[in-house]
């Protein structure tokens, strides 16, 4: 009997996982198709852009600044053992533009805007607001989901661009004012090793992460059930799923963009 129970549990778990992936796949295709098909809702796009981009500015800016500062400090501690202190500026700028900028901004925005999206859509679901949209000749996918996907794809690269600048500035502040590098030398070292591809690859990653954050926020909110507890679960799932996917896809994208 216990064996049968275990098999039943395993079967239910596999079916649940397949159902989740199938639903997510259909939701993704539907969401993307609505991004390209009119009618468009500019006010909703603007509102989502503000939510994801503008209101995430402080947290992304602070994260990037301190990450650049810590990176410079830690690099100095390690590199000074090998007499390679001059590489600090290069390490900071390459780390920030290629990896830390997009990943940390993605994680921060996921925790802030992704959670907010899931909570808002989840509340709309459990209070029948999404059904009400349908009765008012408005496709909820088009009105709620497509604008957020679009805003995510546009807003995160802009945030990452800012994070890149502030991360490098953090490294500069520590390098020049604490570690004693000359201002000109630090900047020269920074820009001599920086290539356009480093920045562009980070922005491509950011666009993908922005899409993922909006997708997981919308998907989990849209399918939430069961009142306040359901909305809470949806919010947690949105953040966890987006964070894990960001880290996993970061590896895949790095492999694709920098493989030799």
């Amino acid at each position: 009997m216990k064996v049968l129970d275990a098999v039943a549990w395993l079967g239910a778990a596999v079916l649940g996982a397949v159902e989740y992936v199938g639903e997510l796949g259909m939701f993704t295709v539907s969401g993307i198709s609505h991004v390209f098909r009119p009618p468009y809702y500019p006010r909703q796009i603007g509102r989502a852009f503000m939510e994801i981009g503008y209101f995430s500015l402080p947290v992304v800016a602070l994260t990037a600044l301190f990450t650049g500062m810590v990176l410079a400090l830690q690099s100095y501690t390690g590199f000074s053992r090998f007499g390679a202190e001059s590489a600090i500026a290069s390490v900071v700028v390459l780390s920030v533009t290629r990896e830390l900028g997009p990943v940390l901004a993605g994680l921060m925005v996921s925790g802030r805007a992704g959670a907010a999206m899931a909570a808002e859509l989840g509340t709309m679901r459990v209070t029948d607001q999404i059904d009400a949209l349908s009765t008012l000749s408005t496709d909820p996918m088009k009105y709620l989901v497509a604008p957020r996907l679009l805003a995510g794809i546009i807003a995160l690269p802009l945030l990452v661009l800012l994070a890149d600048i502030l991360g490098v500035m953090g490294g500069y502040l520590v390098g020049v004012y604490k570690l004693g590098f000359s201002s000109g030398g630090y900047l020269t070292s920074t820009f001599s090793n920086l290539q356009a591809q480093d920045v562009i690859s980070g922005l491509i990653k950011a666009a993908v992460f922005g899409f993922l954050i909006a997708l997981m926020g919308c998907f989990n909110g849209y399918r939430s059930r069961g009142g306040a507890q359901g909305v809470g679960s949806a919010t947690t799932s949105a953040v966890v799923a987006a964070s894990v996917l960001i880290l996993a896809l970061d590896y895949v994208l790095t492999q694709v963009l920098f493989a030799k």
Binding site: R47, E120, T123, M124, T127, D128, Q129, D131, A132, L133, T135
Partner: peptide, 14 residues
């Protein structure tokens, strides 16, 4: 053709 009054109003709070 259908207009609907939902149980809790279902007003868009945004």
């Amino acid at each position: 053709q259908i207009g609907m009054l939902f149980q809790n109003g279902a007003l868009f709070d945004s």
